[in-house]
Structure formats: structure tokens, C-alpha cells
Design a protein around this nucleic acid. Structure first.
Lengths: 207, 207
DNA sequence: ATCAGTTTTTGAATTCAGTCACAAAACTTG
DNA sequence: CAAGTTTTGTGACTGAATTCAAAAACTGAT
């Protein structure tokens, strides 16, 4: 596994680069230099060069980086060249927002199973998928090959949902409920919490 | 400004501590030790002590930290003891989710102005606030004392909205559109991007 | 072909964050 | 009040990430 050598901070920046490179490509540029890219993401060019150097030699000196192969390589490193199916739990405001979210990295993410516990919604179709009862989470997930679950339910219910997802054999969770989930070692949790983001912002905003 | 000495990683963790401490307080605990808190957030206790030590001596040795004063102090450091009013642009799925988001740090965040460009929605009331036309953003924001704007519109429109917010005199933006906004120096942008989070996750999920 | 101008590559130097380990402090118990 | 226990606070250490700078490689022009 060569991966282990790539610093985690670098990995965290890759999706950011990817987003910029895709836009660059759309604009028709074939190459980009580290300092151009650095400008676009408000960083130092040296950091970008170092980051990219961790997984091979991409640039040609005097010219810059070829956009297309660079995109392909980053997607490969992040495993975005594979197809990922998702289970979504909770079709409230957040859940619906996710379902209608347009740019899921060029279709490599797809919602496969959708759950809710509202009898009004269960059985209906949303985005062409039938909504299942939340009590069936572990069963249905187990039968599928889904590796990622997304939790978009009220706080109190998040614990139980996480538990069911884990029992269904999930290996990654994205949790929109602002509570801390205690999961076994093999299961990675990503917490997305608006008030946390807001707090980081207010710290910096006072003159 | 003493702030400058606090490592940014520490600041990033404060909201996390805050969330846990609030829950601890609800459970009726008056004090908490660094190792108890460490367990709750899956970290080493030393890191927590170090973090807290950056802004004063809080704990009493042999006992731990008093929860209430600690919460108060963290809220103060993050400037959460002040009232923050927000401008929300875009009342689609994401926008609605935000409006109905319950725990905005004990009411220190409040949506004051709401905008959209859909004639069907403009003029209507949502959460007790009238929805204004997006073309009025810079004017209305300028007249208000709002410092934070939230962008929850489709990608292409995000640039223009950001521009208007900046002209309205905003100093922080939270952007849910997965595009990079180029703002003047005084304006801080926080990017929230689901596919970025997902990508960080997929990197780690392959055996 | 050579030179000037760019821009990557890469190891070294620096800065920053995290861990460790222990002294000092406060509380508890007899 | 003294001995024992717990837990903080912190300086020294270790390791990771970032920046720096010298060397190498490409382009285009003369």
C-alpha cells in the first residue's frame, strides 16, 4: 500500500483540487501551473507542488500540469473511478436536499436505498426510488453492497440509525445530526454540522 | 490580540468540545475530567488539556473542569456570546433545511434576511420572515448589521450572489454551492460541500 | 544551437501540532 | 492534619506538515 505515505492533509486537499481542475477543464485549458492553481484555491504554490509530487511526476517543467491526466489520477487516488452506492436515512429537508444535489462527482455516487420512519412517506417513490421503513435498514443494507450510509434524521434517532447501519455492514457514515456517534473500529464517521462551521467562522470574524 | 497564539487546530476543536459539554450539562454533571471528555470525542486527554490551557486555567486539580464556566468561556472565545444575524440566499431544499435546523447554538444565530429569485416564493413568509427578491441583496444587507451570509443557490448563481453579499458589506460567507468563490481579503468563505466530504471518505474505504 | 525565461522536482530547513511524563495542586479519608 | 489519590498544567520531546531553495527540464526565440 503506497497510500500510507500520503499525508492526510494532502488527501483532504485533493477533492478541492479536483473541483478546480474540473472547472479549468471546462474552460478549455489544457495545462495549469502550480501557481495558477494556487491562486484559484488561495494557497501557496509550493504546497500544491508538494502535494502532487506524492503520487508521481505529472508536471512538465517550464509548462505546468496537464489537466486531464491529473484529474484522472486524483480521481483514481480518491477511488472516485469506482461506483459508490449510498443508503440515505431520513427524507426530511436535509435528505431531500441531498437527493436533489446535482454534482455528485460525475455520477460516481448513487443513492440506492432510501429510508424514513414517517408512515406518510414510506412506500412512496422519491427520485425514482421507493422509500423503505427505517426498521428494515440493517436487513436491506446487508443484502446490498452498499458501503456508505448517510444519516439525515433528528438527533435522538441518529444513534439508533447508526447502529442499524453498522449491523447492516456499512463501513462509512456521513452524519448530519449534530451528535457524536460511537461506532466500532472499522466504521469511519464523517460529521457534518452547520453550527460547528458557523462557530469556526464567528471566531475569525471579530475585528 | 492574544488570539493569534491559539493554534488553529485547537480553535477547530472548540465547537466539538462545546457540543459535548452542553450534553454533559444536560445530564446534570457539574464537572468533567479531561479523560472523560477525551472518551466522548475519541481523543487523547493530553490534547484536551493542552487545548484548554491556551486560554487560561480552568480545571481544579484532582477534580476536573467545571462544566458551566468552561462552556461560557468557550462560547466567549468563539464569539458565540454575541448575537449573530444571518442573511440566507436561496430557499430551496438546502435553504429550507437550514431554516428548520434546530440547535443553532442556543439562539445566538438568527436568520434576519431571506432571499430568493423565484417569483412564486418572493413576498411569501417563511419561518415568520418575508422572502425578498435576490436583486435587493446588497441594498438590504447594507442597511442591516448582518455580517454573515449563507449561499444556498444553484452553482451558476453562486458567484453573483457572493458578489452582491460582498457589496452589501458582509464579512463572512458560508457557501453550499460546490464552486470556489473569489472574494476580497476581508471576506472569509467557508465551503460546505458534500461531495468533498464523500471523497475524503471513499479514499479511506477501500481495503 | 544556444540562451533566456519558466516551472517542476526534491531534499533540507523550519515551523507547527501532538504526546509524554511529572511536579504541583486540590480534594478525600482516616 | 498527614498520607494517599486524583487530575491539572506545562516544559521537553517527537513527529508531521509546510516552506524554502537549488538543481533539472522544458519552451520559444534568436
Amino acid at each position: 500500500m503506497k497510500k500510507a505515505e500520503i499525508p492526510k492533509e494532502t488527501v483532504n486537499r485533493l477533492p478541492l483540487y479536483l473541483r478546480c481542475l474540473n472547472r479549468i477543464l471546462l474552460r478549455g485549458h489544457k495545462t495549469i501551473s502550480s501557481s495558477e492553481l494556487a491562486n484559484l484555491v488561495s494557497m501557496g504554490p509550493a504546497k500544491i507542488r508538494k502535494d502532487l509530487s506524492y503520487f508521481g511526476k505529472f508536471g512538465t517543467r517550464g509548462v505546468g500540469y496537464e489537466v486531464k491526466p491529473l484529474i484522472a489520477r486524483i480521481r483514481e487516488i480518491l477511488n472516485l473511478d469506482k461506483n459508490w452506492t449510498l443508503a440515505l436515512v431520513g427524507v426530511g429537508n436535509v435528505g431531500s436536499a441531498l437527493l436533489s444535489y446535482p454534482g455528485f462527482n460525475r455520477g460516481c455516487f448513487k443513492f440506492e436505498l432510501i429510508f424514513d420512519d414517517d408512515p406518510e412517506i414510506i412506500g412512496k417513490e422519491i427520485s425514482g426510488k421507493k422509500v423503505h421503513d427505517s426498521s428494515e435498514i440493517s436487513d436491506l443494507v446487508k443484502k446490498s453492497s452498499i458501503k456508505i450510509g448517510i444519516i439525515a434524521v433528528p438527533n435522538e434517532k441518529a444513534y439508533d440509525v447508526a447502529d442499524q447501519l453498522v449491523r447492516g455492514g456499512i463501513s462509512g457514515i456521513i452524519n448530519f445530526a449534530p451528535v457524536y456517534l460511537d461506532t466500532p473500529d472499522g466504521v469511519k464517521v464523517y460529521q457534518i454540522d452547520l453550527s460547528t462551521e458557523l462557530s469556526s467562522l464567528t471566531y475569525h470574524l471579530v475585528s
